[in-house]
Nucleic acid binder design. Structure first.
Lengths: 240, 240
DNA sequence: TCTGCTAACATGTATATACATTATCGAAAG
DNA sequence: CTTTCGATAATGTATATACATGTTAGCAGA
């Protein structure tokens, strides 16, 4: 009855239930108390219990069935949150000076042969931008970006000489869905030279496709020297 | 579950606000109506408006400030969901036969020199397991795992000759927090031989640390030949 | 026995209300 | 002119209540 936790009733109930589930005391499939019982047990109203259980259900920890009650969910496939940082912020967090260099910029009348973008028509007009992000005096990351000019026509008139295209795009396109593919490759001769690493160095490749409500926006491929970079993904059950 | 039906007031307001934000009609920084105004506008109570806004805030679409109001969030740091699949399921989804081979299994009285595990005391007893996951007749992924015997003492008595240690652990340790680090490396001579790839091949390395409520559970490093594997992370605004 | 209706039960959604919390602004005090 | 302090505005949390919805169990009737 006396839970040592401080704070709101809501968070106290939440913490209690989470602990019981995460610790395994309540195994998957176990039925938790009904809303009315929870309310009685904690001396709160059913609304409060309902909100806690709803939140647990959203977090995927429990499953709710009408008439039957609420049950501890089966531990499903882990979904970890991968934070894709802004490159400039990432460099600065390493206490290094950030630099940006535009290497190439073309307007294409059709998709390039060396970078496939499945969502795009073969003859879609594209901007094709190659640039380099620097950390201090060393190359940090090579960026190759295609922008769909049908969705973002203004990109055709941007030089991207000073501003990284990613920054500019964020200010243009509101919210978007994204998909990331992460692979490893050996640096080709060209890549190795641009990144100033030995040829064949293992590199981390992050390919991101972005959509806005209006359609595909951009495909961007980042190449990081693998020994100097890592992505971090965290999984906390019952977060938020 | 939260797949609200079309009819409910809650979901109608939610859909409306989401559309306004995602479409860019309300750009980042824009202040949305106060709870009382929303309630008036939709003819509902403030509680209902509050729940909708709370949900949008949890989804990361808006930011709430007392006294000031609620504002459309900046679409900056993208947090994408990385699905960490079970290896066996992953292999089977490629329509290949899954195979497992235990290569080495030791009980250590102290942390090994070649695989750092920051959360663990230097003299902690560990199980050290090296195994290979096969897809068809070819090596798919090399797994090196340390298990903290203080948290999972039973691991000392498991041979892991037939069952991958990951499967066994899931049945032992209920739920857990995890952190993944993803990097790229060139295959060492030993790695290359085990994976049956040329020496120096770029490989994707996924290192996962797992905690249970009782303490650190396991550190595992998966090495995939980079040209045969990719990780996928998706980001959908307004989920959960 | 099988079917179909009903009653109950648990959750889902919504309302009105109350008071707590907190950031901000402006006015009073130093 | 600066600091402090309180009023105010907005959100945060909680309550009691009401009715809707979907699911199950059990009972009635053919």
């Amino acid at each position: 009855m006396t839970t040592e936790k401080e704070g709101t009733l809501h968070s106290r109930i939440l913490a209690d239930l989470e602990r019981l589930i995460l610790s395994g005391d309540w195994p998957p499939g176990h039925r938790l108390p009904f809303e009315v019982d929870l309310a009685a047990q904690y001396g709160c109203s059913r609304m409060t219990a309902n909100k806690v259980l709803t939140q647990l259900a959203r977090a995927g920890l429990i499953e709710r069935r009408k008439k039957s009650g609420s049950f501890v969910a089966q531990p499903v496939a882990q979904a970890a949150v991968l934070e894709i940082h802004d490159i400039e912020a990432e460099v600065r967090s390493l206490n290094l000076a950030y630099g940006y260099r535009l290497l190439k910029r073309n307007i294409l009348k059709a998709a390039p042969a060396d970078l496939a973008w499945p969502d795009i028509a073969q003859d879609a007009p594209l901007a094709d931008i190659l640039s380099l992000h620097m950390a201090g005096s060393r190359p940090f990351c090579l960026e190759r970006r295609l922008i769909n000019l049908q969705t973002v026509p203004d990109a055709a008139h941007q030089s991207f000489e000073e501003t990284p295209s990613g920054h500019w795009l964020i200010s243009q396109v509101p919210w978007s869905a994204a998909e990331h593919r992460i692979t490893a490759v050996s640096a080709t001769a060209e890549t190795a030279e641009l990144l100033d690493v030995p040829r064949g160095t293992a590199c981390l490749v992050v390919e991101r496709r972005t959509w806005s409500p209006d359609g595909p926006v951009t495909l961007v491929r980042f190449i990081y020297p693998g020994d100097r970079h890592e992505l971090v993904a965290r999984f906390q059950p019952g977060e938020s």
